[in-house]
Design a protein around this nucleic acid. Structure first.
Length: 507
RNA sequence: GGCCCGUUCGUCUAGUCGGUUAGGACGCCAGGUUUUCAUCCUGGAAAUCAGGGGUUCGAGUCCCCUACGGGCUACCA
């Protein structure tokens, strides 16, 4: 019997989650659900100095909006609670002590200032300072001072950190699900701090301890963690957990659309697209960063777009709902190289999803806008308008601009359209038309069609002589659905009014 | 600087066992349909597979080197 698959998404609450983070969460989720496993939200808040108010709530709300449901986590608890590392604080010391006892770690008493000075010194010699096997014996730690001195320092409450004792000349192998075997030379690793002087573990210790305790089977995280993966492997080994060590998968990064480099929070508004799922207002600076939700993206479209950024199904299918993504997803189809985010394609995805929505749903989304504009309209009418207009928009926010003429007469007339289509006899044709349409009995499309054809024949006119003019009168510009369609929607009385109005204004 | 990862049309990518006219999608352009816009349909431009060496009858696919890009290099995650 194989172990139940368990994955975690483990952000630190240092700010809003950007789309790279959402994608990491998404891949974790898809992998878990594909394998009937659990998806866990753990908050990595071991650095109190970087805590940002509202960030945790933001993360939870964002993933909820995306439709990614957790099985366990800070917000819903679970068998391994608590899920916030600051609340698990006591737990980590025990493991740090265990490493100490086994001789895989040591106390270090060097102050940050002292280390900083050393770093500067090395830098001036064009070298890099490392706390490692090469330097540790010249520094202030439990390897260089006597046991009794160490005891005394600890007793007197002197600040200390606990560092891992990285072995010399060992090849550490990380077997990555995406990149294959990656080998590191331990001599190039430094003696990373595992336990900080403030009594908190660092990420390295905490994530290994928690992943083990929470029985995580697969660690799927960003590529920025690959360099510290050998350290984590070592920790599993030293803690005696190597046999149950999770599988690693390091995801490629999301790159900014212009130039190179990892996508950052400022790129979005700089380039005119959101980098955050939800709008974020910086609690300190009050700066506003736009979100996908507020920009009118459907969560399904957003998720679909994100899923295909770095992963592909190997088929030509591009439109996937969450369930289909779950079914299609496999880690081995995740690419190795970073992807640039393409705002244009993101729009296209949203367009696709608008087409799939039924008119009722769209009308429901559109209704608040109409209320705001003081328009009262029958809901059935709004539904039909939405049905007619949806193929012309990418976002619901465009609906009003493109369909206002269904609810209110145009107030401006496109000068270019007038210039191109308004002729000597235009007013005359329109007047004649409006006089005739009074007799129209039926507002269905066929009747209107028949009426128009008859009108054109009896007056020996071509379509081109009438239709563009009608469009000018009824819409105000050269966009929108079929004229017949529009007349049937707004009715003959309104059409006549608009025609007369237009003649007055244009001639 | 050191270590690690990466590199196929502008962008996302297919290509997993070496033999393809290197395929698709977005975007772009042209044509068709329509009274207009959008949709839709058809077609087009667009990758010397980063470059150079090998191995091989044959390399986008395997090996090496170089270049470029990125990540990491904190008592941050």
């Amino acid at each position: 019997m194989t172990k139940n698959i368990r994955v975690r998404f483990a952000p630190s609450p240092t700010g809003p989650l950007h789309i790279g983070g959402v994608r990491t969460a998404l891949y974790n989720y898809l992998f878990a659900k594909k394998n009937n496993g659990d998806f866990i939200l753990r908050i990595e808040d071991t650095d109190q100095t970087r805590f940002v108010t509202g960030a945790e709530e933001y993360i939870i709300e964002s993933l909820e909006w995306c439709g990614l449901k957790f099985d366990e986590g800070v917000h819903i608890s679970g068998p391994h609670a608590p899920y916030r590392q600051s609340e698990r604080k006591e737990l980590y010391k025990e493991y740090a002590d265990l490493l100490l006892a086994k001789g895989f770690a040591y106390y270090a008493f060097d102050s940050s200032e002292e280390l900083e000075t050393l770093r500067k010194e090395y830098e001036s010699k064009k070298e890099t300072f490392f706390y490692s096997s090469k330097t540790r014996l010249n520094l202030n730690n439990s390897l260089t001072i006597s046991e009794s001195e160490v005891k005394q320092k600890l007793l007197s409450g002197e600040k200390y950190v606990i560092r891992i004792k990285i072995p010399e000349n060992e090849q550490i192998v990380v077997n990555d699900q995406i990149r294959g075997v990656v080998t590191f030379d331990s001599s190039l690793l430094d003696d990373k701090v595992l336990y900080k002087s403030d009594g908190m573990p660092t990420y390295h210790l905490a994530n290994v301890v928690d992943d083990h305790l929470m029985e995580i089977t697969h660690v799927i995280r960003g590529e920025e963690w690959l360099p510290s993966a050998p350290l984590h492997v070592l920790l599993y080994r030293y803690l005696g957990w190597e046999k149950e060590m999770p599988q690693f998968a390091h995801l490629p990064l999301l790159l900014k659309p212009d130039g190179n480099g990892k996508l950052s929070k400022r790129d979005g508004d700089r380039l005119g697209f959101p980098v955050f799922p939800l709008q974020w207002i910086d609690p300190k600076t009050k700066e506003i960063y736009s979100g996908y939700k507020e920009s009118g993206y459907f969560p399904e479209a957003f998720i679909n777009m994100l899923a295909l950024l770095g992963w592909n199904p190997g088929t030509e299918q591009e439109i996937f709902n969450l369930q289909q993504l779950i079914e299609a997803f496999t880690i081995d189809r995740v690419g190795k190289s970073g992807s640039k985010f393409d705002p244009e394609k993101a729009k296209w995805f949203n367009h696709q999803y608008i087409q799939k929505k039924d008119n009722k749903t769209l009308a429901y989304l559109f209704a608040p806008v109409l209320i705001e504009k003081n328009i009262s309209a029958d809901i059935k009418y709004v539904e039909e308008v939405c049905g007619l207009m949806k193929e012309r928009i990418n976002f619901m926010s465009e609906m009003w601009d493109k369909s206002a003429f269904f609810f209110t007469a145009p107030s401006v007339y496109d000068p270019k359209l007038i210039k191109d289509k308004w002729k000597e006899n235009s007013a005359q044709i329109l007047t004649l038309f409006s006089e005739n349409i009074v007799n129209l009995q039926n507002h269905n499309i066929d009747s209107i069609d028949a009426f128009i054809n008859e009108f054109l024949t009896t007056n020996q006119l071509g379509k081109g002589q009438l239709m563009p003019l009608l469009r000018l009168c009824l819409v105000g510009n050269s966009t929108g659905p079929d004229i017949t369609q529009i007349i049937s929607f707004i009715g003959k009385t309104e059409s006549i009014n608009r025609i007369n109005n237009c003649i007055q204004k244009v001639k």
